[in-house]
Each structure stands twice: as C-alpha cells, then as structure tokens.
C-alpha cells in the first residue's frame, strides 16, 4: 500500500505515472533511476507491501561525497508537481507467488490516486524475437484501449512501432494471435489487467540481452522523452547517472597483485 511521507500530502490528480516492470536486464528500473536523478525529484511516499523482497540502503541519488543519511526502501514514489509527474521506483524482484496480488495493488492505487495515464517501462528477451522483429529498432509500445483514446495517433506520428502479436500456431492457423513478452515480468499481466479494467496504460519496452544494460536504459528513456518531453528538447536530453550505479562490475583490485 502507498504510505505518504510525513508533512507531505501529495495529490496525483491528472498526473502521469511512470513505473518500471522488473524485467530482463533491469532496463525499466535503470531508466526510472535516470528520470528521478535527472529531474531531481523528491520522495513523497513508500509503496510498502509484502509482495516485494525487502531491501534497504542509503539514498541512491545523493552524490557519493555527501554523507547522506536518507534511508531508501524497496519501492518508493517520487513526484515533480511542476511536470505533473509521479515515478514509482521498484528496487527488488516481486515474490513469484505474489505477482497477481501485486498487479491488483498497483491497479487499485492507480485508480484511487486519479492518475491520468500510466507508463510502464519494460524489456523483453532479445533472443526470442521472431524474423520480422529482428529487422527493426528494438523499441516497441503497447496501448490499452483507454490509453488509445487519450493518446490517439500521437505515437504513430512519432514513428513508433507497436509490439507485434505472434501467431499462436505458426503455419497452422493465421488468425489466432497472442501477445508474448518473454522476460517481461508482470508486463503482460499488468497490460491485460489494465485493458480489462479500462485503465489508461502505455507499455514502452525494448528488446535486450542480459549484461551491461546501461545503454539499453539510455535508449529507452530517450525514446520515452521523445513522447513525454521530460527533459528539454528530445535532441539535447542530458541524463544524469546516479552515483549508486558505481561498482556494477565489482570492487577495486588489490594493489598487491602488481
């Protein structure tokens, strides 16, 4: 459930919510980090639930020299009232048996907070693309019917590509199709739920492989910026990398080995 921080009474009426799906390469989470750190957003609340694995650390967006003591938890909500933007960052995996309750929790929070639209940043296994998907940009989008009414053709005009539906029985039946997002975590489930519950949701995802996924995160967040204009003009977007991204590939080397 959402618990606001003392002395703040955030209202999310008509806000845009951006949140990651915990998915392959953690691309959505990295992209979300970039948004929070670049826009210098302030924390307005926690998303405290037993569906996520608990973790704590020090403020990941503080400069490392600053001896910051602000405790950060598993899932937190940041807001920027000027931009009418709220961001939910999720920092740990969803417990596997609790995916459904988690999706329900998110949707009921979106409904009760009055968000105008929700953007889910996600990713999918690059190695599971089919022939037509390999031959183009790795970025895709999906709109729930409610979102389609809000956005209209804006994304088509930006030259974005919609996530293709795959044939259920290739070679046998050409009519039955299904949405397939391998490695996307709750992406497909949340999208389906939003479609049936008439919640405006856009999924913006990239195909990627596990590894150093920082370039994927930059590509995804710049792509999103083409649409939402979060930072400056699309061309001169300067993203600020949070200090906590250091040491992703291990510690320093012992000097004694030289």
């Amino acid at each position: 459930m959402f618990i606001q921080i003392e002395n703040t009474s955030p209202s999310f009426k008509e806000f845009t919510l951006v949140m990651p799906a915990v998915s392959v390469g953690n691309v959505g989470q990295l992209a979300t980090d970039l948004i929070i750190s670049t826009l210098n957003m302030s924390r307005v609340g926690y998303f405290h639930t037993g569906c996520l694995i608990p973790m704590v650390g020090n403020n990941p967006y503080a400069p490392s020299a600053d001896n910051s003591t602000e405790l950060c938890t598993t899932a937190e909500v940041y807001a920027s009232p000027d931009l009418k933007l709220a961001v939910l960052q999720i920092r740990s995996p969803i417990i596997q048996t609790k995916r459904k309750p988690f999706r329900k929790l998110i949707i009921s929070w979106i409904k009760s907070s009055g968000f105008a639209r929700t953007v889910l940043l996600s990713s999918s296994h690059a190695y599971q693309r089919d022939d037509q998907q390999i031959h183009s940009t790795p970025l895709r989008y999906l709109l729930s019917p409610a979102m389609q009414r809000v956005v209209g053709d804006a994304l088509k005009e930006l030259d974005w590509r919609e996530m293709e539906k795959l044939k259920m029985f290739p070679g046998l039946s050409e009519t039955e199709e299904r949405l397939y997002i391998p490695g996307g975590g709750i992406t497909k489930g949340l999208y389906t739920d939003c479609c049936s519950e008439d919640v405006p949701l856009a999924v913006v995802l990239t195909f990627c492989s596990e590894g150093d996924n920082i370039p994927d995160a930059f590509a995804l967040v710049s792509h999103l910026n083409d649409w939402l204009h979060l930072v400056g003009k699309p061309s001169d977007a300067q993203w600020k990398v949070p200090d906590s991204w250091r040491l992703l590939f291990g510690n320093g080397i012992p000097l004694a080995i030289f």
Partner: peptide
C-alpha cells in the same frame, strides 16, 4: 560510519528497518 552507496542490506534486517522507516 554509515553504509556507503551502492551497498544494500537485504533479509530480515532490511524488512525490520523498512517497517520502522515507514511507521516512523
């Protein structure tokens, strides 16, 4: 000294500390 970034704590200690942070 306080725990430096990007170190994190997980497990029961993290669950208790999260609870305390949220419940003030």
């Amino acid at each position: 000294p306080l725990l430096e970034q990007p170190n994190i704590v997980t497990g029961l200690a993290a669950a208790v500390l999260s609870h305390c942070q949220v419940q003030r």
